[in-house]
C-alpha cells in the first residue's frame, strides 16, 4: 500500500468537496465511499476574512484528512499565498498544488508548477502537484522536493477518463517507487479502475461524484472500482492477445458429427 508522505490509507480515493448539492450530501458521499482524504479549495477572499469558517468546520467535522488545494491559481505567487493561507486555516502542511496555465482546458502550467513546488517544499509543505503525464516534468517536480506526483487523466471536470493510457503507463514504469495519483478527468468508476489496473496508487476526483444524480451512491461505486482495480493490478493481469486461447483443452474431445 503506497504511503503519501508517510500516510498510507486503506482506501486511496481522494474526494473533492466542491459542487455538491449540499454539505449534507457531501458528508454522506464521504461516508459511503470510505474516503480517508478530502480535498478542499480555498478562496483567498474567504480565508483572509475568516468568512468561510462555517463551511471549513463542516469539512473538519468529516473526520478525515484534509488536503487543501490551490484550485484556480494562475501564478506562482497566487499559489504560494493560497497554500500559506490553507496551512493556517486547516492546520496541515499538505497542499495539492494546482497552477493553471490555460483557461479552456485548465491544463497545468508545468513551468510555474515546478517553481511553486520548490518554494513550497523549501517552506516545509508536503506538495501534491497536479501535473501532466510528462515524465521530464515529473522528474523536475521530484527534484523540487515533491514525493508524490498527480498526473491528469483528462482536463478537470471533463469526465473523459484516461486520455493517454500509454503516457500514464510509461510514467508508472519510469517512477516505480513514487506514489502516483490520477487527478482530474475521471468520469466513470471504470476509468478509476483502469488507472488502478495500470498500477496507480490513488485516484483524485470531484465532479464525477458531486454532479452525479446520486452523489453518495456514485462515491461508493468509485470506492469499489478503485478496490477492484488495485486488486487486479496486484494479481498480475494476463496479457491481451490476438488469437483465441481456449481455457479448456480441445485435444482428445470426442467427435459427435
Amino acid at each position: 500500500m503506497a504511503a503519501f508522505y508517510g500516510f498510507a490509507p486503506d482506501n486511496p480515493l481522494f474526494l473533492g468537496t466542491a459542487q455538491y448539492p449540499s454539505p449534507a450530501i457531501l458528508a454522506e458521499a464521504v461516508r459511503r465511499s470510505g474516503a480517508e482524504v478530502v480535498t478542499v479549495s480555498l478562496r483567498r477572499e474567504s480565508a483572509g476574512s475568516g468568512a468561510g469558517q462555517a463551511f471549513w468546520s463542516l469539512i473538519r467535522e468529516l473526520g478525515v484528512k484534509v488536503l487543501p488545494n490551490t484550485a484556480g491559481c494562475h501564478t506562482v505567487k497566487e499559489a504560494v499565498t493560497t497554500a500559506q493561507m490553507a496551512r493556517e486555516v486547516f492546520g496541515t502542511d499538505w497542499i495539492k498544488l494546482e497552477v493553471i496555465g490555460e483557461d479552456d482546458t485548465l491544463q497545468p502550467d508545468v513551468i510555474a508548477l515546478v517553481e511553486a513546488a520548490r518554494i513550497l517544499s523549501d517552506d516545509g509543505f508536503k506538495v501534491f502537484p497536479y501535473t501532466t503525464e510528462d515524465i521530464v516534468v515529473g522528474s523536475r517536480l521530484l527534484d523540487a522536493g515533491c514525493e508524490v506526483l498527480m498526473p491528469w487523466g483528462a482536463p478537470i471536470g471533463s469526465g473523459r477518463g484516461l486520455n493517454n493510457p500509454y503516457g500514464l503507463r510509461t510514467m508508472r514504469q519510469h517512477f516505480p517507487d513514487i506514489p502516483l495519483v490520477v487527478d482530474a478527468g475521471i468520469g466513470l468508476p471504470s476509468h478509476a479502475a483502469q488507472a488502478m489496473e495500470l498500477g496507480y496508487d490513488g485516484i483524485l476526483l470531484n465532479t464525477a461524484v458531486a454532479k452525479a444524480g446520486d452523489p453518495a451512491a456514485m462515491a461508493e461505486a468509485f470506492a469499489l472500482a478503485i478496490r477492484a482495480g488495485r486488486l487486479a493490478f496486484a494479481a498480475q493481469p494476463i496479457e491481451a492477445r490476438d488469437m483465441a486461447a481456449p481455457s479448456t483443452p480441445v485435444m482428445g474431445k470426442a467427435f459427435l458429427a
Binding site: R43, E45, S46, S49, A51, G52, Q53, A54, F55
Partner: peptide, 11 residues
C-alpha cells in the same frame, strides 16, 4: 454561490 458568510464586497 460562495461558501462564505461575508455579506458585503464583490470580488
Amino acid at each position: 454561490m460562495i461558501e462564505s458568510g461575508a455579506r458585503r464586497r464583490i470580488s
